[in-house]
């Protein structure tokens, strides 16, 4: 009797299982399947083992793009997280119409489709008709993102900062709003400086939203595709060709499905690994160290 009832329960799990299978497991396994075979046509395929992985890992073009990608994501985080926190800190604690206006302005870039963002900046940064490009040139700086790799690089970075800093700012603002006023009052009474308030009250209480912000910004920037593709097409040369564009070139342009599959799995693992690293470091509780230090202090002090 009991066994029968248990079997019935499986039927209830089945719809979810099918859904997950179709949305995640089967596509992923397909990629795994491609990555270990050499496929010529529908009927001809050879098992090649880890050969594609070896080939991809030795590919210097991909090495370059991986390094480029890390530098880009790192720059994005280093600029956007502090900038987002700063913007959130500058917003008034008690909301009024000015806050609402700023919130709307902040949210605007987030609402624009990504390829449109690329297009906007493609025009905006042009030396002849773009306001930004023209202004920079007018300042006497020789700037041309279509021919100079550094200019192209900085433009892509600037575009990402423009596009995504608002997300960090909004997350931080919501985090700041969640801090009860009593904490600020207590800090005032304790004669805390502005910096101490930030360091010991605001920052610790922003931790949870910052974990989300860092993870989102890392994953998104690490997989960036559309905006640089529209803005620079990966150029000049390969200067702004990031990982996902290399992958697309390999899979769609050259139709190297095997290496492309191996590459996407490695790509996926890198994102997973770095995200995990970020998550564990950011959420790590320093209870033990604190205790250890306190014990040491007591021994040294008395």
């Amino acid at each position: 009797m009991t066994k029968l009832r248990n079997n019935k329960a499986w039927w209830l799990v089945l719809p979810m299982f099918v859904l997950v299978a179709f949305s995640a497991i089967i596509p992923l396994m397909t990629v795994v399947n491609y990555s270990v075979q050499d496929i010529f046509d529908q009927n001809t395929a050879y098992f090649v083992g880890v050969e594609w992985y070896q080939e991809v890992l030795r590919d210097t073009r991909l090495h370059d793009s991986l390094i480029r990608q890390f530098i880009f994501s790192f720059s994005v985080l280093v600029i956007e997280i502090p900038l987002g926190i700063l913007i959130a800190l500058l917003m008034p604690k008690t909301p009024n119409w000015k806050t609402s206006l700023v919130l709307i302005l902040l949210a605007l870039p987030l609402l624009i489709p990504w390829n449109v963002v690329g297009t906007i900046w493609q025009v905006f940064a042009r030396g002849d008709i773009g306001l930004f490009g023209w202004a920079v040139n007018a300042l006497g700086i020789d700037y041309n993102y279509t021919s100079n790799s550094l200019d192209a690089w900085l433009t892509v970075l600037l575009m990402d900062v423009w596009h995504w800093t608002p997300l960090v700012a909004l997350l931080c603002y919501s985090g700041l709003r969640a801090i009860p006023n009593a904490y600020y009052q207590a800090a005032q009474i304790d004669r805390a400086s502005r910096w101490a308030v930030f360091r010991y009250i605001q920052l610790p209480r922003l931790k949870s939203v910052l974990v989300i912000a860092v993870l989102l910004r890392f994953m998104d920037s690490f997989m960036i595709y559309t905006e640089p593709f529209v803005l620079t097409g990966g150029g000049p040369g390969n200067a702004t060709t990031f990982l996902s564009q290399s992958l697309t070139q390999m899979a769609v342009g050259q139709f190297d499905l095997g290496p492309a599959a191996a590459f996407s799995l490695i790509y996926f693992l890198i994102v997973l690994l770095v995200s995990w690293l970020f998550f564990t470091t950011l959420t790590y509780e320093r209870e033990d160290t604190a205790q250890y230090k306190a014990v040491q202090h007591n021994e040294g002090g008395s």
Binding site: P180, A182, Y183, Q185, A186, Q188, I189, R191, A192, Y200, I201, L203, P204
Partner: peptide, 19 residues
Amino acid sequence: SPQQRNIAQVFQFPVVYDA
């Protein structure tokens, strides 16, 4: 400001710096 007045105040509900 409270800082300049050099005054201590204890509130009804505990405020601790939890970090």
